[in-house]
């Protein structure tokens, strides 16, 4: 994949009402990387992701997509380059997986244009990549949470974008499905997709991220390789969790083991 940076934030500021949620973020997301954004609740990580995707309008600074301000793209053109899975899945009752994935083709279609062979190929390829081909005709509500999340990812893939932003894709999933979804992200990343994900679980972040971005109170406090950043002192300072860190016996990545804390702290 082309080296360098596809997506970059410069002095990015954002507000929710009067509250400043992002206080001047500078961030360059490497092309072909698997970047994971972590941080305590309400640190602004979701707002950062949403601002990067232009779902949230920043109050200052810019986001550059391929060197051009993201605000200057037509929504359709932006959607062909960058796909995002926001939180909170809503789908009409009775929709099938293939119909959902087909809706991902919207940025490539014009009004009243018939369904093309290219659309069909893109939908089928996306379902194969996300591992939901066998579920194509199933109704979305009949699937498990993990299968559903993979169907949403397939829809984002059908968009044809090679930058994929995911906002807490594993929340509300059981462990097996969490791993399933994250392994899918790894496979997509290996195939060339640039991945940026907000995750809650530090151990999963450490395991899957090629680059970790740590936020607190609207600012980036550290970024780099997980093994360089995640030390007991750092974790205690940011998350207020005393812990020990040891190498994961399988991957060699940092494995965080929290120490018990007396309840009356």
């Amino acid at each position: 994949m082309n080296a360098g940076t596809r997506l970059r934030a410069e002095a990015l500021r954002a507000h929710h009402g009067a509250r400043e949620v992002l206080k001047g973020i500078d961030l360059a997301l490497p092309a072909g990387g698997f970047t994971v954004i972590v941080g305590p609740n309400a640190c602004g990580k979701s707002t950062l992701l949403r601002s990067l995707a232009r779902l949230h309008r920043p109050s200052g600074g810019t986001v550059l997509l391929d060197g051009l301000s993201i605000a200057r793209y037509r929504p359709r053109d932006r959607a062909r380059l960058l796909a995002v899975l926001p939180q909170g899945a809503e789908a009409p009752e009775g929709i099938t997986v293939v119909d959902l994935v087909a809706r991902g083709r919207h940025p490539h279609r014009s009004l009243f244009q018939p369904w093309t062979a290219a659309d069909q190929t893109a939908v089928e390829t996306a379902m194969v990549s996300a591992g939901v081909s066998l579920l194509a005709e199933r109704r979305l509500e009949s699937l498990s949470g993990g299968q559903r999340q993979k169907a949403w990812i397939a829809m984002a893939l059908a968009q044809g974008a090679d930058i994929l932003l995911l906002d807490e894709p594993t929340t509300f999933l059981d462990l097996a499905h969490q791993i399933d979804v994250l392994e899918l992200c790894v496979a997509l990343n290996r195939a060339g997709t640039t991945i940026v994900a907000v995750l809650h679980d530090l151990n999963q972040a450490a395991r899957y991220a090629s680059r970790l971005v740590v936020m607190r109170a609207g600012e980036i406090v550290a970024q780099g390789l997980p093994e360089d950043l995640l030390t007991p002192g750092f974790i205690d300072a940011i998350f207020h969790v005393p812990c020990i860190v040891m190498p994961d016996p399988l991957t060699g990545k940092p494995l965080i083991v929290p120490k018990p804390v007396p309840p009356s702290r």
């Binding site: 949403r50 995707a53 779902l55 959607a79 995002v84 789908a91």
Partner: peptide, 21 residues
């Protein structure tokens, strides 16, 4: 004329916006 976009609005405002609506 709005029908395809309404299909995407049904998925939520954020998802519709992320698909270029």
């Amino acid at each position: 004329a709005l029908a395809p976009r309404l299909d995407l609005l049904a998925l939520g405002d954020d998802r519709a916006a992320s698909l270029g609506v």
